[in-house]
Amino acid sequence: MDDLGNRVFYWLTDETNVTILLFGLTVLLSGSSLVLYFLSSQRSATRVEFGLLITAMGVLFYMTLRNRTF
């Protein structure tokens, strides 16, 4: 019987799963930035919102490089 570590390793070796996971992270980061923007009383982006967007763009750039090499 496989333990949890082996199952996670085999799940993460599949490129489709890794791509879905990274895309989900990007959606989560950009969505949280959007929610924070609409919930704030200011009508300009804060450092946290800007940082979340920059991180989401960084993950997308990494996904682009990763999918080009395989």
Rank of each mutant, 00 (worst) to 15 (best):
I54M: 10
L29F: 09
F23W: 02
R7H: 05
Y37K: 10
F23V: 03
M57E: 13
A56M: 01
Y37P: 05
D3W: 13
G58K: 00
L65I: 14
S33Q: 07
V59Y: 02
R68L: 10
N6H: 14
I20W: 05
L4Y: 06
N67M: 11
L52A: 05
M57N: 11
F9L: 09
G31T: 06
Y37L: 06
T16M: 04
G5S: 10
E49T: 03
F23Y: 14
V35S: 11
R68M: 12
R68T: 11
G24A: 15
R68H: 07
T55R: 02
F9H: 13
I20P: 00
M57A: 15
V27A: 06
T16H: 05
V48E: 03
I20Q: 12
D2Q: 14
L4M: 11
V59D: 02
D14I: 10
F9P: 05
M1E: 08
G5N: 11
D3T: 13
L21G: 03
I54G: 01
G51A: 07
T46W: 01
T64H: 08
T16R: 08
R47P: 04
V59E: 02
T64Y: 14
L29G: 01
S41D: 13
Q42G: 10
S40N: 15
Y62H: 12
T69A: 12
L34I: 06
V8S: 00
G24V: 07
T19F: 03
L53N: 04
L28T: 06
L53E: 00
I54F: 09
S32M: 08
V48W: 03
T46C: 10
L28C: 07
V18K: 01
D14N: 10
R66C: 01
S32H: 05
S30M: 11
L60D: 08
M57W: 10
L60R: 09
T64N: 13
L12I: 14
T64C: 12
V59Q: 00
V8C: 04
F38Q: 12
F61I: 14
V48C: 01
